[in-house]
Design a protein around this nucleic acid. Structure first.
Length: 443
RNA sequence: GUGGCUGUAGCUCACUCGGUUAGAGCACCGGUUUGUGGUACCGGGGGUAGCGGGUUCGAAUCCCGUCAGCCACCCCA
């Protein structure tokens, strides 16, 4: 006997979870499309050279790689951005610019697992390439906002920053060359506290004054306007810094005008996101009730997406929703539906002599757009209803020989445990109408 | 990849210093006389104590390895 098991960081998805996942995918798809992003897809497997091109040690370590049967060195994609870069370089001529795409697919990383961190997980990316317009930046924020609202999450915060602000401050302090290390230390502020960070900075040779300035920057909180005012002071006369602050100010203002509600936008200078390739706006999204889960949707602006694969500069901006991480969060918060069935109507196979009637009723409902499950065996009605309730069917349609003779049906609300009678006179169209209006009244 | 904690029925857990056939709740299946479900009662299936090895007369209980989960580092969705 082979022991049934799954690899570390790889998971099965039972119906309740799979339904929740599909719901999130549907919502993301709808929101992305509502802004005109078009779907694309790319292979899970790429030539190794495509994936390691960016070549940080970290991605190398996390990469699932092997030699295929034809002797090619290949790897599983670890994000959707690198394949998109390759895709864009390969197809720009067919796409036209600017180009907006979304891509929802699994990625693989051989790193250590943790809550909300898996080795196989789904990302839902959207990017706009071929334009440096701030409108695209704004749109990214709006999409993220719409996404979480559409999912039904009330309490979330989109944290914004601009790499140019960081660069400005670091330049002013004469630390531009050591940027990555300094930012990495600052990133830990929320976790380890100011003292530890200060010690770490000192160890890196950062002077006390500079360290104090950096800590002040990373500790800034409050309404965006307040933080921006402080940042304006901190970037001093550096041109790049002033540009960054100005861009953030305009962005926040327009986003608020665009309907992003109070408190959901924050300017957070400690966000350093993607220490290498982001060059402008950076964004992270947190669930207010579960901040330790980490960002569930992150992104930013980059000067050149595909420089490794083409000489044509492709500036762009985009973000990625971590579907599986978000799902882990929603599950922990008890926000997930317990339903295990996608069907709205359960139809007991009640009276053995009337199978044909049941088939006809089910067919009519389906033709009318109602998902209905007919139980496959004429078991005891009680058992069938019990199963239906357990599966989370909202309703059941009980029709026995008495009902068929009278042209009626018992329409059960399985949650409320109530029952109403539908009088359809043997006319299927009437029955379907009654069920449809009954179901839509529930929502 | 490094370090720490954890691992007993599907789930949550119990089993006093290592000592007879490892228990409970929930869940599941069946029944309470043949057409009506979350309550009640009765009955039932299910665990080689993650897996492998060692110490011991004897281990769920101690030791080692391994796999998995969680936490931290790192990184990130």
């Amino acid at each position: 006997m082979i022991e049934p098991r799954t690899l570390k960081g790889f998971r099965d998805h039972l119906p309740a979870q799979a339904l929740a996942r599909e719901r999130l995918l549907d919502i993301a798809r709808r929101v992305y499309r509502s802004y005109g992003f078009a779907p694309i897809d790319t292979p899970a497997l790429e030539y190794l050279e495509i994936l390691v091109g960016k070549g940080s040690e970290e991605t190398d370590r996390q990469l699932y790689r092997f030699r295929d049967h034809g002797g090619r060195d290949v790897g599983l994609r670890f994000d959707l951005t690198v394949p998109f870069a390759r895709f864009a370089a390969q197809h720009v001529h067919e796409l036209g610019l600017p180009f907006k795409r979304y891509h929802m697919a699994p990625v693989w990383r051989g790193e250590n697992t943790q809550r909300g961190r898996y080795r196989e997980f789904v990302q839902c990316d959207f990017d706009t390439i071929g334009t440096t317009s701030p409108v695209a930046d704004l749109e990214m924020v709006l999409v993220v906002h719409d996404l979480f609202v559409a999912i039904g999450i009330e309490r979330f915060t989109i944290r914004l920053n601009d790499r140019r602000v960081l660069t400005g401050i670091l330049t002013r302090l004469g630390l531009a060359a050591r940027g990555p290390h300094v930012l990495r230390s600052l990133d830990k502020l929320a976790k380890v506290g100011a003292e530890s960070v200060a010690a770490e900075l000192a160890a890196q040779g950062v002077g006390a004054d500079a360290a104090a300035t950096l800590l002040e920057m990373a500790s800034l909180t409050g309404p965006p306007a307040t933080v921006l005012a402080a940042l304006e002071r901190l970037v001093g006369e550096t041109e790049i810094g002033r540009t960054g602050v100005a861009a953030l100010r305009v962005l926040v203002e327009r986003a608020e005008q665009g309907g992003v509600g109070g408190g959901r936008l924050a300017v957070d200078p400690s966000i350093a996101r993607g220490l290498d390739y982001y060059t402008g706006l950076v964004l992270e999204t947190f669930l207010d009730d579960l901040p330790t889960l980490g960002s569930v949707c992150s992104g930013g602006r980059y000067d050149d997406l595909a420089g490794l694969y083409t000489k044509q500069p492709l500036p762009g901006i985009g973000a990625s929703l971590g579907l599986d991480r978000l799902l882990a969060g929603l599950e922990e918060l008890g926000c997930l539906d317990a339903r295990e069935t996608p069907a709205d109507v359960f139809l007991p196979y009640f009276d053995e002599r009337h199978l044909v009637d049941y088939l006809r009723i089910a067919a009519a409902l389906r033709a009318g757009g109602v998902a209905v499950e007919l139980y496959p065996e004429p078991r005891k009605l009680g058992q069938q209803l019990k199963l239906a309730a357990k599966r989370g069917f909202p309703t059941a349609l009980v029709i026995g020989s008495d009902e068929l003779a009278a042209g009626t049906a018992q329409w059960k609300d399985l949650h409320a445990q109530t029952s109403t009678m539908i009088d359809w006179h043997g006319d299927l169209a009437v029955l379907v109408d009654a069920v449809r209006s009954g179901l839509s009244a529930r929502h």
